[in-house]
Nucleic acid binder design. Sequence first.
DNA 1: CTGAAAGCGCTTACAG
DNA 2: CTGAAAGCGCTTACAG
Lengths: 328, 328
Amino acid sequence: MNIRRIAKLVGTSHMTVSRALNNSPLVAEETRKRVLEVAESLGYQINAGARGLATGLTTTIGILYPYHRLREVESWYTSQLMHDIRSALWKHGFDSMIAGYDTADHNLSDITRLMAQKKVDGLIVIGYEVTAEALEALASITHRYIAVNPPRMPWMNAHTGLFIDQELGGALAAQTLRSAGRIRVAVALEPTPQFETRHTGFIREIGDDVPVFHLPDGTYRAAYDLAVERGTELTRFDGLFVGSDISALGVMNGLLDRGIRVPEEIAIVGFDDIEWARYARPALTTVHQPRREVAAAAAERIMALVQDAGDDPMSTVFQPRVIARESC
Amino acid sequence: MNIRRIAKLVGTSHMTVSRALNNSPLVAEETRKRVLEVAESLGYQINAGARGLATGLTTTIGILYPYHRLREVESWYTSQLMHDIRSALWKHGFDSMIAGYDTADHNLSDITRLMAQKKVDGLIVIGYEVTAEALEALASITHRYIAVNPPRMPWMNAHTGLFIDQELGGALAAQTLRSAGRIRVAVALEPTPQFETRHTGFIREIGDDVPVFHLPDGTYRAAYDLAVERGTELTRFDGLFVGSDISALGVMNGLLDRGIRVPEEIAIVGFDDIEWARYARPALTTVHQPRREVAAAAAERIMALVQDAGDDPMSTVFQPRVIARESC
DNA sequence: CTGAAAGCGCTTACAG
DNA sequence: CTGAAAGCGCTTACAG
């Protein structure tokens, strides 16, 4: 089924059909009506590849998230954020193509491929793992991309980014522990730059003589094991900032299973505000990242770039905020 | 950048370039080498739309999940399943396009659109909400689709499906409660057909005089509220089967917050085995749905269909199993 | 308001 | 082993 067949049935040319289908004003009202009727009755759908070849546009946006060596497990927060972005794009009439990227091996084809192959009109790159060289590679072939939650580095000035103020988040966590009267505090962090930034904010607020517990990775399991194995050590502190909710919940359960009470003996503050933070017992006090707002802004920004409106690099910073629950 | 430009640089025709790029044996080894060098140095990537227009193939698979009116919230189980399928497809070299579908309004364009527009080579339709008319509409335009976890209805014989035995799952839940010595049992269910099937298996095993608590929807909140509001009523029972983990965790927390002990006063069995079932306190005993296996099978099955191997409708049934933890 | 021509960047089929 | 022709299904640009 194609526009030539419809043209034949209606008794016009395929060009007129194309115009009618695209709501061009250059079609007689009656012609348009007949074309639409026939197209409808045949269940006609445009061939996206052909339209894309002619126009250069595909009506789909790529969403890239950090994966493979960067993170063994898809983060729950990222997963929810992607879902929100997908919904937002869908409201704009765009499909979403989702793929993982990995900047750990300096192979940048993950990042550029979907654009270079013209599979998508624009790209939303999610994650703190994005690098200067990755975005430069992207910039060399298109301006239709944005980074969501990238690191706040000088090189990001050359790109459009939607930031969440990670450092402020860390500082808020520190304030929360202090307001709860916690004096002897420590932090537990995963070994990635994003957590360094949260840590920086934390010690900026509370001083840099804060002991650090290093989590081997971002899994619940690793955090749980840490708490179980080093529980006694942890009880020397009365407050703990854990760099992500999933780890915070692991630590909390580990402590609980060792009979250490939260928050009575040790208060815990997490980061992200994933759905499960609220369902845990005690419910987790955490730093909320405004993912709905970020998702909506990401969709709108990429739409603007696809429509060639305002392609100057532009930064937007979102503020995290504390959600006080039971763990601190 | 296109193959004509590469051809000019190499001093050959674009056809030879095309062949070299596609590993055709009909190219002199030296010619191929030069083509590949030049392509590499220019960072050439094929135009997917053009290739798709010529071959009819896009190297992308669509994944459809139930959304909109069908489910207000993307289910955590479905979300993880999609992630697993995406990973499996990626290993086969395919991109994934993700979209929601809604069969509640009998508008089937959600289901057929991606295939009809030739945006994807094949479609994986996830969910118990899929209908006979939806799959028939799909079948009328392609045979490259499979349904994952559809209802086990006679009409599914006409389609390829990957099933999880929901009824068996319900029966296993009943057995688990009985083995734990629970006599006065009840069930709490969401108002969707999938839960009816689980219910059917449950009462087949344990008798049909089992009271039903109706959850208004599939959210944690609704389940939590039910437990809080009708906690006294619930304590008349010593065992409860809740149709999904998210609801089970809601009920459990609601009971806990009312001071009702789980499993001492009332044992709880959930369904799905989402990640958080294990992290809850008490950890949730639940019916595990083998999503990794299902995801791998889905990817392999759709690959076979895309390669036109074995296009006869075919059913595969996966068995759920009980994961005994603390709540029962 | 309508249509014939040319082109988007590939591949298939055929001729050499 | 190589290349010219034709075509995939659209749209843009131009002529009427």
